[in-house]
Design a protein around this nucleic acid. Sequence first.
DNA 1: GCGGAACCTGAATGTTGACTCATGTTTCAA
DNA 2: TTGAAACATGAGTCAACATTCAGGTTCCGC
Lengths: 211, 211
Amino acid sequence: MSQHSGSAPAQAEERSGPKTERGRRTLRRLLDAAGEEFGARGYHETAISNITQRAGVGLGTFYVYFKSKEEVFRALVADMGARTRHALSESVKDAPNRLEAERLGIRAYLEFVRTHKSLYRVVMEAQFVAPEAYRDYYRVFSEAYRQQLRQAAARGEVSSGDDDVRVWALMGASTFLGLKFGVWEDGADVGAVSEAAADLMINGLAPRLKE
Amino acid sequence: MSQHSGSAPAQAEERSGPKTERGRRTLRRLLDAAGEEFGARGYHETAISNITQRAGVGLGTFYVYFKSKEEVFRALVADMGARTRHALSESVKDAPNRLEAERLGIRAYLEFVRTHKSLYRVVMEAQFVAPEAYRDYYRVFSEAYRQQLRQAAARGEVSSGDDDVRVWALMGASTFLGLKFGVWEDGADVGAVSEAAADLMINGLAPRLKE
DNA sequence: GCGGAACCTGAATGTTGACTCATGTTTCAA
DNA sequence: TTGAAACATGAGTCAACATTCAGGTTCCGC
């Protein structure tokens, strides 16, 4: 919601960011280190000292940039949301119609998850660590998605239905596929998985009519 | 996986359960209390003393029945798995075909989530607290589900496709719908939601042919 | 080459909470 | 009735951090 759903950095609730180049560099290193540590060990298993060590700064430095452990975490979730939205809208922007956009979207999503495993885990864990941030993440997504579906239905590109329900079902499908084939089985063929998934989303389970 | 995927109680890795009636009663109270506390506050916010207080027993008693905090948690996940499977197979057992079974299943699932919110949260948090238990939960589900789809495809009741992908997409859809309409918006009309969801799963997004 | 703003530091503090254990109490078979 | 197995207890132990703070260091305009 609110202010900075803009683009990339998202150092969030920081009192008006670093003033110098040195400061910006340190902030970036802390954010990166936090993403990797939280992603690898999880929120509760990660100590601030793990983050500062990985970032190569002193323990106290962390609190120059963040008010608390939870604050970095929230900043990371917001950052991940912005990045995911960006990757998806890029991948879909040339789609000739909505069904094709679904195809492209699911594929891009799987690839994105695979190349951002750590941050993906952070987002999922946010459900328990920062529920507000988690709900925002999906709320923003679902609102954009729902609007796409509504417009596509008006154009006759998709059937009409309860878009709120559809959007959540589709987000859930993508999320689980991301977990299973993007994180757990990262050797799986992304192309094949996304084709199969898109086919299900577009045509459903019903047997094909013989024409 | 392993041993006790049997039926209901699942006091799990306990050294050969309680011997007396008194003991069984205490164990049950501890499990129930743990489910409620973990469900309400989450794993890390819940102290063993919260559980024992709710159960009305002394702190030390907890360790008569469980080796650790994590062990109760795992027992609860396993218990929830067994109960969910039971509820679903019951709801679906009279379905005339697979598409109808999908309809009934999604509805039963939403209702089950709504009446077991606490344990539902426990299962989701298991992804971070007891990853092994979480994967088992979905692995068992997906294997049964996949077999159902395969058999239904052989009967011509559903189209054929990559069942591994389909199953995970469908489980993801149900899970998200459970979260959104079962936990977050527990006032929503379950009947309407499950109809819309089943329609999407069965027919997909593609526009209906005019016949 | 000074003064202060921005930045950096890590030892010390304080809290929290899982788990232990020495000591009871209850149950019940013999 | 008795002894021991099963069960119950909660004060005390102990390690693990998150966060603070008092005192540096670096940078830069003047």
